[in-house]
């Protein structure tokens, strides 16, 4: 266990070094924030002053050195636009993103797995075929389109749900979340369903494939033959053996949902991290972009670590060593 932790940690360090260099080089090549900050008719002195203020007058390796040194102290610099610490801005947005992502992940588990089990166990039934057809739609429809259609149908046509925004925020166990108020829950439905749509479809298809494979195995036949109830055969035996790839995908989905909900958040004006990232890219706000990407890298390593741990729970044969 300890060995495993050390291995993971050293991986994390390598990942961070490589990612930070990539981010640093790419953000300095793509766009110059100075010209977006000063007024367009700025004099050379004004531009020079801005360049020096941002520390962009030094050569790139020196800038990188300063960046790494500060980052080790938890200081990713001040956002060029907000004039506030970059990491603080990201942390401030994190709960909002986490909220819709958790709801979306729960939705994909609650809807995706049972439907996948069903259509895997009874592939020839008409309902299973309908589920599969719909899942293709779920995978192939782009989220910005789904989002707009949902807004049109549920918010404008039926008038049931609000169009956008986060709504009222309440407190549960000291955590401020939209899930604490009815208004907040009404606001969270559309963005998280939009977010979940593609994932539900993926989970259905993945579970179905695994189920189909397992249903043909001898142990399932044997279980049936000895009279184990159908439900137990499906969920206790076959599903359990299908779960490994499903959990892997859940981990990856969780990571990418948290990191890159940009489109959904922009459409629903949701004040989360994804929107912060896209706004920062548009304004070449380097401190936020680099802090963000590093944050995401750490998060992915962490999630993969948890996924590995879950493997050992699901399948005792798997050893972390």
């Amino acid at each position: 266990m300890f060995q495993y932790l050390v291995k993971r940690l050293s991986q994390l360090i390598i990942v961070l070094v490589v990612v930070s260099m990539l981010v640093f080089v790419s953000t300095s090549v793509l766009g110059n924030p100075v010209y977006l900050m000063v007024r367009e008719n700025a004099t050379e002195e004004e531009i020079q002053a801005a360049v020096e203020y941002l520390g962009l007058d030094k050569p790139l390796p020196v800038q990188y050195g300063i960046f790494v040194k500060n980052a080790l102290h938890g200081d990713f610099g001040k956002s060029y636009m907000y004039h506030l610490p970059a990491l603080g801005l990201i942390a401030e947005r994190f709960p909002a993103t986490l909220e819709i992502v958790i709801v979306a992940i729960l939705l994909s588990a609650i809807i995706g797995i049972p439907l996948g089990v069903y259509s895997g166990a009874f592939p020839k039934k008409r309902t299973s075929r309908t589920i599969m057809t719909l899942s293709i739609a779920g995978i192939s429809l782009p989220s910005f389109w789904i989002g707009m259609v949902m807004i049109y149908f549920f918010a404008l046509y039926l008038g049931l749900l609000p169009v956008s925004g986060r709504g009222e925020v309440g407190t549960i166990f000291g955590i401020r979340t939209s899930l604490a108020t009815w208004d907040g829950i009404r606001h969270i439905i559309l963005p998280s369903v939009t977010l979940a749509m593609g994932n539900i479809a993926t989970i259905i298809r993945l579970t179905r494939a695994g189920m189909q494979e397992n249903m043909r195995q001898d142990y399932v036949k044997f279980a049936r033959a000895k009279g184990v109830p159908a439900r137990k055969v499906l969920f206790g035996h076959a599903l359990k053996n299908t779960l490994i790839p499903v959990v892997t995908i859940f981990g990856l989905q969780l990571g990418s949902l948290i990191a890159f909900t940009t489109i959904t958040e922009t459409i629903f004006a949701w004040p989360g991290m994804g929107k912060l990232l896209i706004d920062s890219i548009n304004s070449a706000d380097r401190p936020i972009i680099s802090a963000y990407i590093l944050f995401v890298a750490v998060m992915f390593v962490f999630i993969n670590f948890i996924v590995d741990l879950i493997y050992t729970v699901i399948d005792p044969r798997i050893d972390l060593q």
Binding site: M148, I151, Y152, A155, L156, G159, P162, V163, S164, G165, T266, I267, F268, A269, K275, D279
Partner: peptide, 18 residues
């Protein structure tokens, strides 16, 4: 003041009366 970056979402908010 509500910041609504996406232009279609702004239109939808206007129609919904938000």
């Amino acid at each position: 003041f509500k910041p609504i970056t996406n232009e279609s979402t702004r239109t939808a908010n206007m129609i919904s009366g938000a």
